[in-house]
Design a protein around this nucleic acid. Structure first.
Lengths: 240, 240
DNA sequence: CGTCATACGTTGACGGCGTAAGCCTACGGG
DNA sequence: CCCGTAGGCTTACGCCGTCAACGTATGACG
C-alpha cells in the first residue's frame, strides 16, 4: 500500500503520531459522517467516477470493506452526500417575498454549482429526501409563497415551478449549454455548435448564435427568475 | 451462449433463416444506427444499468467487442441515445406564439417522460449537441419567441428559461418529488416524507403536505408554464 | 486478574464492467 | 486465384461493489 494522505486531523489532537489524551488509539474512529464528508470531497475534487468504495477507504486510511461497518451500501453514501449538500442551504433573512424568492433561488443555485455533480446524484436518486435538514429549504419556500398571498395549493405549485426552473437551469449551465467563453470546454462546445449551425438550415439559430455564445449566465438566470416572479405577482393580492 | 433474441428483422427479408436475395449473409449487418437503437430500447425497458456493451451485443447476437467496429466507445452510444431521443421532437404546427410555446413545452416533456433515463444521460453529458436534428427544437423555440416580438438576446434567454424549467420539472417529477399516488414507489416516498414532517418543526410543510401528496402533475406543470408565458407577455409588444 | 463477547478492521474471492490487443475468416477487387 | 481488408471473435487486464470468513483490540463481568 502506497502513501496515504490522512484527511482532516482532529484539531484537538496533539499531533498525528502522538497518542491521545488517554493514550489509546492512533487514528480518528471511522464514522458514517466522516465517510460521507470524505466522499463529498472526493466528488467535488475528482469527479463522480472517483467516488469509489476503495478510493474513499484509501483517503481514510482504511480498506474498502471497513466502510460497510458504518454504511449499508454505496447508495447510502451517495444519498448522504445529497443530504449533506442540501443541509448547506442558508435561509435568507430578508423582508418582502420577492426579494426572499430571489435570494433563495440564488442560494439554491450556489449550492448546486458548488457541488456540480450532486445534480446527477439527485437525478438518479430513487426516493424523496429522508433528511429533515434538507427540508428546511422546502419549508422556507412554502412560507415565502404563503406570505405573498398564495393559497396552499398554489404555494406548492409555485415551489415546484421555482425548484424545477433552478434545477433545470443549473443542469443546462453545467452541461455547457449555457455559459461564457472563459472555459476551454465551453469554447470547444460552442465551436462544434457553430460548425453544425453553419452547415444546416437553421436561420433563427444562426442569427441567435452570437447571443448564445457570448452571454452572461447570471443575467440569463435572472431573466427567468424575473419571469417567474412577475408571473406570480400577477396572481397575487394587489399588494402591500 | 444461451438463446439470443434477434431484434427487428428487416421487413424486406424473405424470412429469418432464408438467404437474402443474392444468397449471401444470414444476418443483418451491424450498424452504428442499429447499435444505438438497441441501446435505447434496453435503456427504456431495463433501465440505465442494463445498458452494457455485453448486453447490447447479446441483444444483437454479437460479442461486445464487435460493437467497437462501429462505435468509438460506450460514451458515443450514450450520446447517440440522446440525439435519437431529441430527434423525436415533433414541431407543433399552430398559430400564435403562446399556444405554440405551450404545445412545444408539452412535446418536450412527453419526450423526456417517454425515455425517463435520458435525463440522466443529458445531465452527465460533457459537450453540447452535435446532431443537427436535435437542434430543430432549438430553432423552433427561437422562431417562436422572435415572432412574439422578443429581441434576439431575449429570445435566447427565454429559450434557456423554458428549457430549464421543463428539464428541471420533469427531473423532479421522475425523482418522485412530484406526482400522484398511483405508483407504489410514490406512495412509499410520500409516507417517508410524512413521517419526517410529523417529527420535525416544519409547520408550513405540515399544512401543505396534503397538497403535495395529492396533486395533479399535469396541473402543476401547467401552472409553471402559465407563469412563464404570463411573465413573457408582460415584456412583449401590446399584441396583435 | 482472567475470560469472553462484541465492534471493527482486514483479506480474499466472485462476477461483472469497459476496453486494449491480437486472431480468424469471408468477401470483393486486382 | 490471391490477397487486403472489414468485421467478426477470444483472451486478458484492471477496475468496480460486495459477500464471507477471519483477526484482534476493547471493555464488561465473574
Amino acid at each position: 500500500m502506497d502513501k496515504v494522505q490522512t484527511e482532516d486531523q482532529s484539531p484537538t489532537s496533539t499531533g498525528p503520531r502522538s497518542l491521545e489524551q488517554h493514550g489509546k488509539r492512533r487514528r480518528e474512529p471511522l464514522t458514517r459522517e466522516r465517510i460521507i464528508r470524505t466522499a463529498l470531497r472526493i466528488m467535488d475534487e475528482e469527479g463522480l467516477d472517483a467516488v469509489t468504495m476503495r478510493h474513499i477507504g484509501r483517503q481514510l486510511g482504511v480498506e474498502a470493506m471497513s466502510l460497510y461497518n458504518h454504511v449499508r451500501d454505496k447508495e447510502e453514501i451517495l444519498d448522504g452526500i445529497c443530504e449533506e449538500v442540501l443541509a448547506e442551504f442558508r435561509v435568507p433573512q430578508v423582508e418582502g417575498w420577492t426579494e426572499a424568492a430571489r435570494l433563495g433561488a440564488h442560494e439554491y443555485r450556489r449550492l448546486l454549482l458548488a457541488h456540480p455533480n450532486v445534480i446527477t446524484l439527485m437525478t438518479e436518486r430513487k426516493g424523496a429526501f429522508t433528511n429533515a435538514e434538507s427540508l428546511r429549504a422546502y419549508e422556507f419556500a412554502l412560507g415565502l409563497f404563503r406570505s405573498a398571498g398564495l393559497s396552499e395549493a398554489d404555494s406548492v405549485k409555485a415551489f415546484h415551478t421555482f425548484g424545477g426552473y433552478i434545477l433545470g437551469f443549473v443542469t443546462m449551465e453545467l452541461g455547457l449549454m449555457i455559459g461564457g467563453p472563459e472555459d476551454e470546454a465551453h469554447v470547444q462546445a460552442h465551436e462544434a455548435m457553430a460548425r453544425l449551425v453553419a452547415s444546416a438550415d437553421l436561420p433563427r439559430l444562426r442569427e441567435a448564435l452570437p447571443y448564445i455564445i457570448d452571454c452572461d449566465v447570471e443575467e440569463q438566470f435572472e431573466f427567468g427568475l424575473d419571469l417567474l416572479i412577475q408571473g406570480l405577482r400577477a396572481r397575487t393580492p394587489p399588494t402591500g
